[in-house]
Design a protein around this nucleic acid. Structure first.
Length: 568
RNA sequence: CGGAGUGUAGCGCAGUCUGGUAGCGCACCUGGUUUGGGACCAGGGGGUCGAAGGUUCGAGUCCUUUCACUCCGACCA
């Protein structure tokens, strides 16, 4: 392609709202164009990258035996009503009516549609297993779109769904998908980790996320320094912590603690490690059908509540903060809450680490008083669960190594769904014995447009993008130093044609611009290699450079095609 | 949704306090010089100042309403 014929509107300045490198460079490089909150147009360069990334995804999935389909973007709401998600999915689901006043939604994910498709045509175990996927637009009316392609409202996603006659077979496919995803992200040149994850709104049991490691990632992940354990902070586990400091010896008693409210203050007041204090976190839990209740979470003072784990422990839809006024209304005192003598209309949850806890200090549910010397005895029916965040320095449950935090961009997520959708939607088949059974399902997602952002987050410098081999819009860029110089032009054009003949995807910067201007554009756009045709053509020499700065050498014109063919 | 802020040329901004011919840089068009690191000179085009209403002889500027967008917190590929 000739640069002069392409629409590549590069910019010196980025829009003021762009903060991440990927957002800034994708816009400045003329890859994408913002059109509204969380909505982007893909310009020619962006479309090329998108197609290349999409191709890698497609090739690997097809190789794994999955089959591509394309489902309608507009989905009849009736399917969503059937699965119960029409109400439950919330405001992220964009709903609208057609001229006949029928309800529709723009698909944010396609479990319903895919189950529906399969249920119409698959009736027998002989047709299983089946893995169907599509790479299509999704729309989620995000509360706060940001970071360019990283969190848009409209985005390109690969979503796959597998159907099986047994749990074992579904697990086999799940592993196959894990391997396939690893191949995809490796081919794209990404540094990533596969981590244990929370299954969230989609549901199901085992679930794994594919995280591209980058400081700008929105997720905190916990990784082990000694083995390959990794988990989203929402699902991370660590070995039980044992406090080496001595426990405060005291007989059970009520103690006057005037105005001592926080864990820090309490720890100072009694001169004890926060490990021996009971922290109480009050939240309001929201459930289906507008039902809500107050929940108190009790944990060690040295721990932090992990909201997702907390949410899962009580099977609620959401946890929201609660004001101290609301607490007072039900007879609780902020800063002095404890597990003893609570009003009976609130739910309580204990963290695992409190089981069998002794010599504890906790709030007395009375202003300015705490209990000391508490040996915790839990009711049989008390909820006990893992509800705290793993901390840096905690020990790995697999190898005992040190756990540390890092940030990741979620680019893929695979779930073992089981029969969560097939059952309510009555998607069933006949097994070997002629018995009706619901499909056992798995579901697998990849954020394709987000991948472009993730690649740039991991591969850029202060000058612009540095595309990886399989994601770059072009393999090489041929740059004419002085476009008015006939000899340079002639040689460059010849090199360009020969590269093309060799099936090397080349961009020819033939614009009548100064050298520096074209180099800045080259660096901004980030094609991995450039052939620079300049003054030295008189001596029969051109230059080859790599965008990452690792190569810059002069090459005889007669050898240039081979030299390029070798590296791209 | 809670808190903060911004809407002026394609992009980045000034002008608003104190009402009086709508500006600057980049980009764009024409001509010329320049050609190994975002060049220079000369000339030029482009705006219903987010929208609606009001005050006023006169509103980008003051008042009211409204919409959009951005940033900080809770969701997700």
């Amino acid at each position: 392609m000739k640069f002069s014929n392409l629409l590549i509107p590069t910019l010196k300045e980025a829009p003021s709202d762009a903060t991440l490198p990927s957002h800034i460079y994708l816009i400045r490089g003329g890859f994408i164009q913002g059109v509204g909150s969380g909505l982007y147009n893909f310009l020619p360069l962006g479309k090329m990258v998108l197609d290349r990334v999409r191709n890698v995804v497609k090739e690997e999935l097809d190789a794994s035996g999955a089959q591509e389909v394309s489902l309608g973007f507009v989905t009849p709401a009736s399917l969503w009503v059937e699965s119960g998600r029409f109400e439950k999915y919330g405001k992220e689901l964009l709903r609208f009516k057609d001229r006949k006043d029928n309800d529709f939604v723009l698909g944010p994910t396609h479990e319903e549609m895919m189950v529906n498709l399969v249920k119409q045509s698959v009736k027998s175990y002989k047709q299983l297993p089946l893995n169907l996927y599509q790479i299509n637009l999704k729309f989620r009316d995000e509360i706060r779109p940001r970071f360019g392609l990283m969190r848009g409202r409209e985005f390109l996603m690969k979503d796959g769904y597998s159907f099986h006659s047994s749990e074992e077979d579904m697990k086999r496919e799940f592993s196959l998908m894990e391997e396939t995803y690893k191949k995809i992200f490796t081919r794209l040149g990404l540094d990533f980790r596969v981590v244990d994850a929370d299954s969230g709104a989609i549901g199901g049991t085992g679930s794994k996320e594919f995280m591209v490691l980058a400081d700008s990632g929105e997720d905190t992940i916990v990784v082990c320094k000694s083995c390959d354990y990794g988990a989203n902070i929402e699902a991370a586990k660590s070995m039980p912590y044992i406090c080496e400091e001595e426990a405060p010896e005291a007989n059970f008693a009520k103690f006057n603690t005037p105005n001592v409210k926080t864990i820090d203050e309490l720890s100072n007041f009694f001169k004890v490690n926060p490990y021996y204090l009971i922290k109480a976190v009050a939240k309001k839990a929201l459930y289906d059908g507008e039902r809500e209740e107050i929940v108190l979470f009790f944990l060690r003072g040295s721990d932090e509540l992990q909201e997702t784990k907390a949410l899962n422990s009580i099977n609620a839809n959401d946890l929201i903060d609660i004001s101290s006024d609301e607490l007072e209304e039900i007879g609780l005192v902020a800063g002095f809450m404890g597990p003893l003598g609570l009003p009976n209309n609130i739910k309580i949850v204990f963290d695992n680490s409190l089981i069998g806890g002794t010599h504890l200090i906790c709030g007395a549910n009375e202003k300015d008083y705490h209990f000391v010397g508490l040996d915790l005895e839990l009711d049989k029916d008390a909820i006990v669960d893992d509800i705290v965040s793993v901390k840096e320095g905690d020990k790995c449950i697999h190898c005992g190594g040190n756990l540390v935090y890092t940030k990741g961009i979620e680019v893929g997520h695979i779930f073992q769904l089981g029969t969560r959708y097939s059952q309510p939607l009555k998607a069933e088949f006949l097994d070997e014995n002629g018995k009706t059974k619901p499909f056992v399902m798995g579901t697998y997602g990849i954020g394709v447009s987000r991948l472009l952002a993730a690649i740039i987050e991991q591969h850029h410098d202060e000058k612009g993008c540095i595309w990886t081999k399989e994601s770059s819009p072009f393999d090489v860029c041929v740059i004419v130093s002085n476009a008015k110089d006939e000899k340079q032009n002639e040689i460059a054009l010849k090199i360009y044609h020969e590269l093309k003949a060799k099936n090397i995807n080349s961009l020819f910067d033939d614009r009548n611009e100064r050298f520096g201007f074209k180099m800045k554009d080259y660096e901004l756009i980030g094609v991995p290699y450039a052939v620079i045709v300049g003054k030295k053509v008189e001596e029969g020499v051109v230059e080859i450079v790599s965008r990452d700065g690792n190569i810059a050498k002069e090459i005889n014109i007669s050898n240039i095609i081979e030299a390029v063919a070798e590296i791209v």
